[in-house]
Design a protein around this nucleic acid. Structure first.
Length: 404
DNA sequence: TCTGGGGTCCTTTTCCTT
DNA sequence: TCTGAAGGAAAAGGACCC
């Protein structure tokens, strides 16, 4: 016998996070079809208008903006269950959703609110279990292994404690999966939604995981799934029994090996408690498609604004970067990107605009555009970049001499 | 009638240098 | 001067995720 603790990793996923946060603010919308999306539209102002002198929960349902009155581009970010019954759902165009459910309440995406609740529930978790990895606004991985009580009932007791603490503080529910690693924990958290817990042990692999569709593996998207289907591989069990050599043949050595390991429930990646950003970007879809020549002025203004926004983001967060890129989406939805690496690190709008302009010159501009984006990569914390600049120069001049 | 925005990571291609 | 191999960095594209 050994008294080494079993590796116990939890994946925690907030239930219908955006919609649940909105219903905390607007409980009068409970049970009604509500969609969230549409971007920076007038809906914000409409709601703020009707706020005057009243608490949010006192706004009559009749005063909320509805899909029927919406015009313009945009997609649904999320929809309540009541709205889904009309056939509307995530990623659907708002104009199409308006046909299916014109009476649905349309709320703007309010990231500031979601971030606020995100920070709250994550703070509660780290008080209980400090080793936590961020996986976006509504998901985390938590390492239970060394937490007192983290082994009891395979992690179920600690998961229940965390669920309870989050609900008592925020009124929000979540689903938790606990397993030997992140890969399995992520799948487990989907087993028992909403407000559920499921515990997967190593020996449950064949019974709990192998019957699932390959698509349930985090990292197998629609493309990889289609290729697996073409090989007559539909379930994780079938993937597990596929020849590793054949997988490597079809998907390349790295992806092939990963697929094989994943199907066998193997994943030894760590729970990372911190991470540095690699790039920051801003992009926007236009109200109508624009042409580089015909709409030059409008496009130029948008381009400059995007550069200023990225620069502001960099400065606010204290980063500089040196790989500047542009992204174009054409009318037919094809995407082109062009990068330009500059000599020094920057967080200045003018320098970004200059380099992005160089990159843009190399892009095909004969077709109308529906989206333009600006990205800064190769990021470094500003203080680290400054230290780099202060350091004695690399022996680059010597190298230059020698090769002369 | 449509199809957002902000990321990460990986693979392939291209270019430059030795 | 040409040619090819090899390797690295940058560029481009694509898949995936929330």
């Amino acid at each position: 016998m050994t008294d080494l603790p079993l590796r116990r990793i939890a994946h925690l996923d907030m239930d219908a996070f955006y919609a649940s946060v909105e219903l905390l603010r607007y409980p009068q919308l409970k049970g009604l079809p509500v969609v969230i999306g549409g971007g920076r539209r007038k809906v914000d102002e409409d709601l703020i208008q009707s706020d005057q002198g009243r608490a949010l929960h006192e706004i009559p349902v009749a005063e909320f903006p509805v899909l029927r009155d919406y015009t313009g581009r945009g997609v649904i970010t999320t929809a309540t269950y009541a709205a889904r019954q009309f056939g509307v759902g995530s990623a659907m165009g708002l104009m199409k959703a308006a046909q299916l459910c014109p009476q649905a309440v349309l709320l703007p995406v309010d990231f500031a609110q979601y971030r606020h609740y995100s920070q709250r529930f994550k703070a509660i978790i780290t008080e209980i279990a400090p080793v936590m990895e961020n996986r976006g606004v509504d998901e985390v991985y938590i390492d239970f292994t060394e937490v007192p009580g983290g082994q009891r009932e395979g992690g179920r007791v600690l998961a229940r404690l965390i669920q309870k603490a989050i609900f008592e503080d925020t009124g929000l529910t979540c689903s938790v999966g606990v397993a030997p690693n992140k890969l399995l924990a992520k799948m487990a958290s989907e087993f028992n939604k909403p407000n559920g817990i499921s515990v997967v042990m190593e020996e449950d692999l064949q019974s709990a995981i192998w019957p699932l569709a390959c698509r349930k593996i985090n990292g197998i998207g629609p493309k990889a799934d289609a290729r697996l289907q073409a090989l007559d591989i539909h379930t994780i069990g079938q993937l597990a029994s596929a020849e590793p050599a054949a997988l490597a043949q079809h998907f390349g050595p790295k992806t092939g090996a990963w697929l094989h390991a994943a199907a066998h429930g193997r994943d030894n990646s760590a729970v990372h408690t911190s991470s540095e950003p690699v790039s920051m970007s801003r992009e926007t879809t236009f109200e109508r498609d624009l042409h580089a020549v015909h709409d030059r002025a409008a496009l130029g203004a948008i381009f400059t604004k995007l550069c200023e926004q990225v620069a502001a983001d960099l400065q606010r967060k204290g980063y500089v970067g040196r790989t500047i890129g542009v992204k174009l989406r054409f009318t037919d939805f094809r995407i082109a990107t062009r990068d330009q690496t500059i000599a020094g690190y920057t967080d200045q709008a003018a320098a970004i605009r200059q380099a992005a302009g160089q990159a843009l010159k190399r892009a095909p501009l004969d077709q109308r555009l529906r989206l333009l984006g600006v990205r800064v990569g190769g990021l470094l914390l500003k203080q680290d970049a400054a230290a780099l600049a202060d350091a004695p120069a690399e022996p680059a001049q010597h190298a230059l001499f020698l090769t002369d």
